[in-house]
């Protein structure tokens, strides 16, 4: 479903190279965890998959369902099924959350040649999804993410994810800022979305999240490259010994 091949990327403005040859394959239905110390390039990778313009791909390719997506803009990628749950979701004053959700949902439907949702149908879906994630519906009457707590923002990202029903879900440190109860709620939400045709790229620092969202594969990203790949036991090993051993081996 996702094939990242020898991906090199740099910051467009400064030319600083961040990804130095990432290779990664994720199959449909797979949950792939990406771990790695701060500054390894995990968020950068997630941004590049979703098409952020701040970065420039200098070498390699990203194939999604067999086709390169590098020429697609973020909206086109989203309509094709790519979703990024941001590490730091943005507050956008003046944009009503409901207007945003509706516009996003209908834009994607339109891009896929589907009919717009009726207002009652849209409301029902939002209410259901909010209920599952224990999000107070009144919160959604506010401008997008404005005044949400850190945990609320993360839950709102998952709410968007479940409404948009993407095929490739990239989650960037969704666990940070969540207490243990919220973590369970979010994990339940993610697990409910698991499906044979849907893949997840779960970026995290901690084994904690992976106890709830059990990965099929675990990849360690360090200094812009995947330095180790393994099964879920790799996450346990990292939890026990830290990154030093893995980094040492790779060096």
């Amino acid at each position: 479903m996702l094939e990242i091949k020898n991906l090199h990327a740099r910051v467009a403005e400064t030319g600083t190279e961040i990804l130095r040859g990432v290779d990664l394959t994720v199959k449909p239905g797979e949950i792939a965890a990406i771990m790695g110390p701060n500054g390894s390039g995990k968020s950068t990778l997630s941004y590049i998959i979703s098409g952020r313009e701040d970065y420039e791909v200098t070498e390699g390719d990203i194939l999604y369902n067999g086709e390169s997506i590098l020429e697609m803009d973020p909206a086109e990628r989203a309509a094709a099924g790519v979703f990024l749950a941001f590490q730091y979701p943005l507050e956008i004053p003046g944009v009503a959350t409901m207007t945003f959700l509706r516009t996003a949902l209908n834009s994607q439907r339109k891009a896929r040649g589907e009919a717009e949702l009726t207002t009652p149908e849209f409301m029902r879906r939002v209410k259901d999804a909010a209920g599952e994630l224990k999000i107070d519906f009144n919160m959604l009457k506010r401008p997008l993410n404005v005044g949400f707590s850190g945990g609320e923002k993360k839950r709102a990202e998952i709410l968007q994810m479940s409404l948009l029903e993407p095929k490739l879900c990239v989650m960037d440190e969704t666990d940070s800022g969540l207490d243990i109860d919220a973590l369970r709620i979010v994990a339940d939400g993610v697990n409910a979305l698991r499906a044979p045709e849907r893949a997840f790229l779960v970026i995290t620092h901690y084994q904690r999240l992976l106890e709830h969202i059990v990965p099929d594969t675990v990849h360690v990203l360090y200094k812009g490259r995947i330095i180790r790949t393994g099964g879920k036991e790799l996450a346990l090993e990292l939890e026990a010994n830290g990154y030093a051993d893995v980094i040492g081996e790779a060096a």
Partner: peptide, 24 residues
Amino acid sequence: ADHLFYLMSRGIPERQARALLVRA
């Protein structure tokens, strides 16, 4: 640009995303 990226990453086409932000 960050706001624009956020909206577009949800599938809102650029023109429409810009319009939403101007309106906001």
